[in-house]
Design a protein around this nucleic acid. Structure first.
Ligand SMILES: NC(=O)c1ccc[n+]([C@@H]2O[C@H](COP(=O)([O-])OP(=O)(O)OC[C@H]3O[C@@H](n4cnc5c(N)ncnc54)[C@H](O)[C@@H]3O)[C@@H](O)[C@H]2O)c1
Ligand SMILES: NC(=O)c1ccc[n+]([C@@H]2O[C@H](COP(=O)([O-])OP(=O)(O)OC[C@H]3O[C@@H](n4cnc5c(N)ncnc54)[C@H](O)[C@@H]3O)[C@@H](O)[C@H]2O)c1
Lengths: 205, 205
DNA sequence: ATAAAATAGTGATTTTTTTCACAAGGTCAA
DNA sequence: TTGACCTTGTGAAAAAAATCACTATTTTAT
């Protein structure tokens, strides 16, 4: 399949979400032109992105929405929602667990927290374990993806435990920077940074 | 100052956060080489990014951390934390309001919600108003930035109200897509998408 | 059946971004 | 003061990404 530019992967996610909206609206086909317009891209770019994965469109018609959704889900490896664990059931972690939209897309099989008041309970249906059990659960269940929402100071240690237990992808919401060995993919999401990024483009009062 | 590549702006945020950590550690100077190593970039790229804004380094020495922090904060227009409002004090909105790290970087002057049980109260110190008052407050206080954490279905309408009232930047956490007129900058953050993006790079179980 | 309209796919080109290679300063120890 | 050593800043080159211009199909209206 060749090397896919990360920018393309990001756009695939956008395509997928838009396609699902269009499907709900009852549409069957969509053209690269329409996708491009709705996502503020060029139609050529949409086609280039999609053709990385083979010819998926129908000339004169566009792309079959249902089929393209299936294809994109396969490419992104989310045909079935992926199993993941969440470490740190605090404000942000709980918000994620509470979000039906989020929960529909990923199967969070367990949460972990150091707070003994939380351990043993369920939060929005997800069982909360002690952080001492991370390693065991990850191994036993063969989990590959972890969502990290602990305080930043413990994040590197927890990340070490996760990687050691066989986790291969970490969605890191903490501002701590995490060193990853080859084969482990860290994706940092820093909400504070997103605001600062926005600020650059907005004139001051 | 010329046109700055968005990728550079994103990296400026990374530099800033790392520099602040280094400052706390008591360091005075840092080289592009070290910045690059810690952020998984090349030293040339760090220097290229910084030199867009003038010569800020000292040959043989590196960059003066304190001075560079000041400079970056000026470039990102966050010398003083920017004033912003938050619409939708639900799970995610409340998590943001609860985060000291987030609150240190942006001054959230008001929250808005349609739920009358929330209106009139304070959440983590921030007063909650009815969504009917958005327009008035934005105008009176001259707010330019809004954080949107409502359910997706009302997001486009709220965005319309915000833009009409003079908001120039929206940090949109909803999966709804928001059309912006020229002069208004929408920055979409879709936490679900971040997970799907990560999934692409992680082998399936 | 035919022509007009729509639309995907693609080689070539352009634009943008990143990296290379190195000159120009500066530090620091002896 | 000298010379070895760093580190920035930058023109040129390379690489990557996006766009253009066009071809090949397919649909649709007549
Ligand atoms: N809340 C936000 O909106 C927001 C915004 C930006 C960044 N962040 C970052 O996200 C992370 C979480 O933020 P939060 O607001 O949810 O914090 P929080 O304090 O509400 O939650 C952290 C949770 O982690 C748990 N924890 C502590 N040590 C642990 C350990 N060793 N193992 C497992 N769990 C442990 C705590 O008990 C707590 O429940 C922080 O790193 C924060 O900087 C949060
Ligand atoms: N919670 C998450 O972690 C998460 C993850 C991914 C995406 N999101 C998105 O973020 C948004 C918020 O998620 P949430 O989990 O906080 O939802 P939520 O339902 O907990 O919160 C939404 C809040 O918006 C308020 N609201 C409704 N209509 C309003 C209006 N017209 N004006 C002002 N406020 C109004 C509600 O009263 C509620 O307090 C959603 O669009 C969701 O899809 C959230």
């Amino acid at each position: 399949m060749g090397r896919i530019p990360p920018a393309t992967v990001k756009r695939l996610c956008f395509y997928l979400h838009l396609l699902e909206r269009l499907k709900k609206e009852g549409k069957e086909y969509v053209s690269s032109k329409e996708l491009a317009e709705r996502l503020d891209l060029t139609d050529t770019q949409v086609r280039r992105d999609l053709v990385y994965f083979g010819k998926m469109g129908k000339r004169g018609m566009g792309y079959e929405i249902e089929k393209l959704i299936k294809e994109l889900r396969k490419i992104l490896k989310i045909e079935k929602p992926r199993r993941a664990i969440l470490i740190g059931a605090g404000n942000l972690g709980t918000a994620l667990l509470a979000s039906p939209f989020f929960r529909k897309r990923v199967e969070i099989v367990a949460a972990f927290d150091a707070d003994i008041n939380k351990v043993g309970r369920r939060i929005h249906g997800v069982p909360v374990y002690s952080d001492c059990e991370i390693s065991r659960v990850v191994r036993e269940m063969g989990i590959k993806i972890a969502i990290l929402t602990t305080p930043p100071d413990v994040a590197p240690d927890i990340a070490g435990i996760l990687i050691n237990a066989g986790i291969q992808g970490i969605l890191n919401f903490t501002p701590a920077s995490i060193k990853s060995p080859p084969g482990v993919f860290i994706h940092d999401v820093d909400l504070t940074m997103e605001l600062e990024y926005l600020s650059f483009f907005v004139e001051e009062e």
